[in-house]
Design a protein around this nucleic acid. Sequence first.
DNA 1: CAGGACATGTAAAATGTTACATGATTCT
DNA 2: AGAATCATGTAACATTTTACATGTCCTG
Lengths: 179, 179
Amino acid sequence: MSLRHALLGLLAAGPASGYDLLKIFNVSLANVWPATQSQVYAELGRLADAGLVEVVAEGPRGRKEYAIADTGRAELRHWLTEVAPTRSGRSDTLLRVFFLGQVEPGQARAYLRRLAETAAGAERDLAALSDAVSAEEDDLAFYGRLALEWGLRFNAMQREWADWAERRIEEREAVARRP
Amino acid sequence: MSLRHALLGLLAAGPASGYDLLKIFNVSLANVWPATQSQVYAELGRLADAGLVEVVAEGPRGRKEYAIADTGRAELRHWLTEVAPTRSGRSDTLLRVFFLGQVEPGQARAYLRRLAETAAGAERDLAALSDAVSAEEDDLAFYGRLALEWGLRFNAMQREWADWAERRIEEREAVARRP
DNA sequence: CAGGACATGTAAAATGTTACATGATTCT
DNA sequence: AGAATCATGTAACATTTTACATGTCCTG
């Protein structure tokens, strides 16, 4: 149930409305913990019912501004320090790799080449984002930059691996052609 | 709906029962596409209803052996070559990084150290698995080894990143202590 | 003949996605 | 006045997890 903790974490930095939070999900957290509008509003309602957050202001157009409550902050800290991370690790991309033997080697290579290109593109985007992000000193920005560096390294790894894997398939094809 | 494709992919290598497939999910695919017993049996039923797989033999204890049908093989190839991979990328681990500012720097460092250790452990396990895996030449083994190499590189990346991030926090603490 | 491995299934609950629905306010 | 943005919510559907339920076969 990490959506709950994502919301608590964001509200820990200051009060916000569902709409505000949604924008953060679509930008900063898009690659870490995507969430839809339905989910955010529903979970905020549940958090308020449970007393982990409170509506601290109402604005125009029915806007409700939420703030984290002490119990919410306690729950957040508990999750951060005492709950073991679940490594779900579901990868569509990697699943396909297992079954690439079902298509022609040329198609398998093309798949890996596309993967390398996608990773290279993501790397460029993140590098640009890294440059654009001002050197703010608040915690969320500091730790956000650590996460961004993770993304850079992940995509570099993926690109290098895909290049390597493509070469492995080429070698195997060469061997298969003249045994 | 990749569970469906995972099953088709495994059956493409040869007929198997739900029980057999489940074992593969808990070993080879555990880190790529985990699936529970409920899911596997239910999805096999749906695949059979849809005609993508067929029951080719019945054994003791109600054992049903499934084989991939031509339409199933076509669906698998279509998914491999024409369906864009969805990068859901939900990471509990990384989500926490964003919110590490909510706990003491020492606790944040401890979190990253645990992460580095977990990655190092996974690296060792995969390296051992890599040695244990015989150098079979069939497609599933070949591409499985490519996926295994991905895991090795991923964990190495994660370990190095966590070490780096821990040092960054140390530096920041040092700066904060004497401004 | 007992215990473990084999083997399949159903049901309920939690979580996530997509689509639908509505309306207010601000800016040009 | 019209368009864009702000702002919240519900409903239906799909997927995943956890728990329950049942029975057979093989080995020591």
